[in-house]
Design a protein around this nucleic acid. Sequence first.
DNA 1: GCTTAATGCAACCCTCGGGTTGCACATATG
DNA 2: CATATGTGCAACCCGAGGGTTGCATTAAGC
Lengths: 104, 104
Amino acid sequence: MTEQLVAVFAALGDDTRWSILLALGEGDASASALAERLPVTRQAIAKHLAVLEQVGVVDSHRVGRELRWSVLGSRLGDTARELDRIGAEWDRRLAAIKRIAEGL
Amino acid sequence: MTEQLVAVFAALGDDTRWSILLALGEGDASASALAERLPVTRQAIAKHLAVLEQVGVVDSHRVGRELRWSVLGSRLGDTARELDRIGAEWDRRLAAIKRIAEGL
DNA sequence: GCTTAATGCAACCCTCGGGTTGCACATATG
DNA sequence: CATATGTGCAACCCGAGGGTTGCATTAAGC
């Protein structure tokens, strides 16, 4: 779980992926539909969605013959809470921090 | 502002940088001191510190002829709050969309 | 059954960045 | 002053990954 933290940050550290998340914020959409709104190809979007899915920020479900993707805001909330916890404890120099992030 | 957010995530999306932050969590240290504890060269660490400094996660101050680095936990807290806000916003919008789709 | 529109897969290009070595410079300290 | 230690800078290597094109495949809808 916490070992995934760094992977989540890495996934969120890309502009194109944020533009995808942004677009999905206005409603679920397929990779093809997203490709029509964004300046990248469908294949590139598909790769990004795979990355986002891997860290659990995004989810897919079939509708007819297309794959619709949706954002899991709760996952972002979870990540935020973890980060906040780490930041708070850092200032207090707690040894617990080490335990949390050492699952690498 | 969001531009900077993505940069922070990108900075936090690297294992080596987390190991540096971890080490700094046990007390301020110079790049050279960190290089003795970590399996990378001082120059590599210096680069990472520059990245972390750029996004405001880390800070430096001179002590004699060495540069000591320290973590700014508050910056992580700020980032976490923004992320949490975004995540909540996402859930809110998607819930609204769902309501609309259900004809309410 | 045929066509159309969607996804899946693979090869390829090229930039970015993590890491290294090597050396020059600066500053405590004997 | 001389030396050792810490920093700064530059060139270089190389693998990862963001992006592309091309084609195969699958599944609706007529």
